[in-house]
């Protein structure tokens, strides 16, 4: 583990499972013996608002908020939200993003357009983008497990043990969805 805190940004729209993913990740860091702080803004999350969570871990963590331009990874369940928060990342860092566009009300009302090619915009800004396509999870209702799929993609880049991951993922999800979540996580792990 590096000396400095590692900062992971997680974002999406209310109802997509951003907060659950942040909790799973925090728990994995705790069980790996690290100091952890996570922050979430969830006042409006159930009403279709933008959701941002941050998880920071390392030998010692002070701020639960990531200073601008220092974040290490971004997990995005929605494309516009990736654009909104990518400035928290260091240049060249990696964004793991679900191919998903949820139109916000000003776009639906025709006041403003939705950015055409978000992946190109993110790459122009100097980020490396790994995509999760909708059919990739391989189980029915893939969007429901996209949060855990993205965690699987992230797991390739972190040094938490497979046992820790298995435990925290399975503990966090309802029993009847354990198998699908396990599969989504393993599938995510295969994508580099």
């Amino acid at each position: 583990m590096p000396e400095k805190a590692t900062s992971i940004i997680l974002t999406g729209v209310g109802g997509q499972g951003v907060l659950l993913a942040a909790r799973i990740l925090s728990e994995a860091a705790l069980r790996s013996g690290l100091d952890v702080k996570s922050s979430e803004v969830h006042g409006m999350s159930q009403r279709g608002g933008s959701v941002l969570a941050q998880v920071r871990f390392g030998p010692r963590v002070y701020s639960p908020l990531t200073p601008k331009g220092t974040g290490d990874y971004l997990l995005a369940l929605e494309e516009l939200e990736a654009l909104r928060y990518c400035a928290l990342l260091k240049k060249n860092s990696r964004i793991m993003m679900q191919r998903c566009r949820i139109l916000p009300s000003p776009v639906i009302a025709g006041f403003t357009p939705y950015p055409e090619d978000s992946v190109a915009l993110l790459r122009e800004e100097g980020y490396r983008v790994s995509l999760m396509n909708e059919d990739e999870v391989g189980t029915s209702g893939s969007a429901r497990f996209a949060n855990v799929f993205l965690l699987g993609m992230l797991a390739c880049h972190l040094q938490f043990s497979p046992e820790v991951w298995r435990e925290v993922v399975l503990n966090a999800v309802p029993e009847r969805f354990r198998e699908q979540n396990r599969q989504a996580f393993e599938k995510g792990r295969t994508i580099l």
């Binding site: 729209v13 009403r47 279709g48 933008s50 909104r84 000003p106």
Partner: peptide, 8 residues
């Protein structure tokens, strides 16, 4: 970036 206000 287009804002995403909460909605009913």
């Amino acid at each position: 970036i287009p804002v995403r206000p909460p909605v009913m």
